[in-house]
Amino acid sequence: MMNKQVFKISKKVVFWCVVAIIFVYMLFPFYWAVNSSLKTESQLQMTPATFIPRNPHTLKVDFTLDNYRSIFTNDKFIHGLLNSTIVSTMTTGLALVVGSFAAFALGKLRFRGKTPSLYLILSMTMFPQVTVLSGLYAVINKLNISALPGMILSYMIFTLPFTVWVLTSFFKSLPRELMQSAQVDGATPFQTFYKILLPLTAPALVTTGLLAFISAWNEYLFSLTFTAIEPASRTVPVAIALFTGTVSRQEPFGEIMAAAVVVTIPLVVLVLIFQRKIIAGLTAGAVKG
């Protein structure tokens, strides 16, 4: 009796230790970015490094908000946030809609050429970015579209194969009886798809969407090239790359860290909001057998 209690408690302790370790591991480097973003150039170079910003002489806690002030007065950064939001949202939306169509076909319908289709889609994303860049640049120029749609379209190269593959595997895991019973009820395959299967894969959709969103959000090379002559369309990573010191070669490390913090937090908030969706999707999913 006593033993069981001890076992139960120690199990709990171990569990929470694991949770704590994961928590620290995931957050510590980010904390270091926050810490660095609150330091001046000379505080960043202090030896030994301090865990909170301190004055180099008196060692009293002393942090600066200058880095944040300067990124928020930087129009290009603010603009970049806006552009990134537009591009990533549109990219994710498009990739999810188009990708879920394809994934439904690949995961649930019977047709010839399924395996080749899957690998063909995957092969579109297997080159390193820089290798396809010049060809892609030529295509975008040929299509004669401006930078924002150009980015959205070109980001399909890495988001669309991803969403197709992930969603296909999820569609496949749904029991076939679901479709059959819907068909018996007289639903067309497409109705079955968007009325029954799609809601069931909601958690997968949200997850896939989030991951795709973030990869679009973080993309740098395509964006740098396509927005080169349209500075107004630059996204956040490009805006950060264009952060500079007061003179050439000087690198505003503190500002880069501040920008990293500012850019990451909205994404985390986004996840917190979508949590509800994930949980809602789960409860919906609980119906199935």
């Binding site: 740098l224 090239t225 690198e251």
Partner: peptide, 24 residues
């Protein structure tokens, strides 16, 4: 037009323009 301070990124960008024979 401002271009990245990192010489290598700047060169990469210029090369794309030259490859496309861009008059921009």
């Amino acid at each position: 037009l401002d271009t990245p301070d990192l010489a290598q990124d700047r060169l990469g960008l210029y090369l794309q323009f030259f490859e496309a024979k861009s008059s921009e």
